[in-house]
Design a binder for these strands. Structure first.
Lengths: 113, 113
DNA sequence: TCGTTGTATTCCTTGACTGGCATATAATGG
DNA sequence: CCATTATATGCCAGTCAAGGAATACAACGA
């Protein structure tokens, strides 16, 4: 819930992997266990962290628990990022201006993948 | 440099605080020490982590070292976020549609908080 | 060159996080 | 009610990161 919990939750690579999995579609724990190659208990613990950070929500389907992404905290991250985005937009602008001033290159900036 | 380093760097609240400080303007280590209330060595270590994650760059000014944000990794974060942003845009859309279907409220959605 | 200022690094201790294993708990079907 | 399936939790050991103190290193001024 707190900002800290969100960052800590996403700091772990396995948890980011889980979040990425859930971006495709909601999944039951079993699927997640298989996909991330951890033991079931470890996976459950990671899911708990994600749950407590508000990043995922659970729906019960018979014995299975189906986890799905909650967009809220992601939006919070986006909000955190906003002021910085302004910063790097400026630097892109600066780059653009510099390119304009050098008539040697006829190619457009080409997205640096 | 790696994605992992970026997340780990930002996982720490003190380091996020430093990054926020540097968003306003570049600062020498001394200023940062004062601002974040840690000892000078601890602060230096945090700066090292940020440096190795590519989040900050150093410029030498006499004895002082002035740290400044590097927009690159922030952009990387933004890129990571992009697919998820699509997700919560959809959910906002869904919310909008639901509000459209309930003619009771005449008020606009009103930003939550 | 020497003292001073500003910053980085090393050493050490402590606390937190991770993963596996075993086990508890919840839900279902017979 | 019992066995089974699906998930969560407790316990333990290994690892790692953080902070403080002391110290080393670098750049400047006299």
């Amino acid at each position: 819930m707190s900002d800290a919990a969100l960052w800590t939750a996403l700091a772990d690579p396995h948890r980011r992997a889980i979040v990425a999995l859930l971006l495709e579609r909601p999944r039951a724990v079993g699927e997640i266990v298989e996909a991330c190659g951890l033991s079931q208990p470890s996976t459950s613990k990671h899911l708990k962290v994600l749950r407590e950070a508000g990043l995922v929500r659970v729906r019960q389907d018979a014995q299975r628990r189906v986890y799905a992404l909650d967009p809220g905290p992601i939006a919070a991250l986006d909000a955190w990022l906003a002021p910085y985005r302004k910063l790097w937009n400026e630097s892109l602008d600066a780059l653009g201006r510099r390119l304009d001033e050098t008539p040697d290159t006829t190619e457009p900036p080409a997205p640096k993948d």
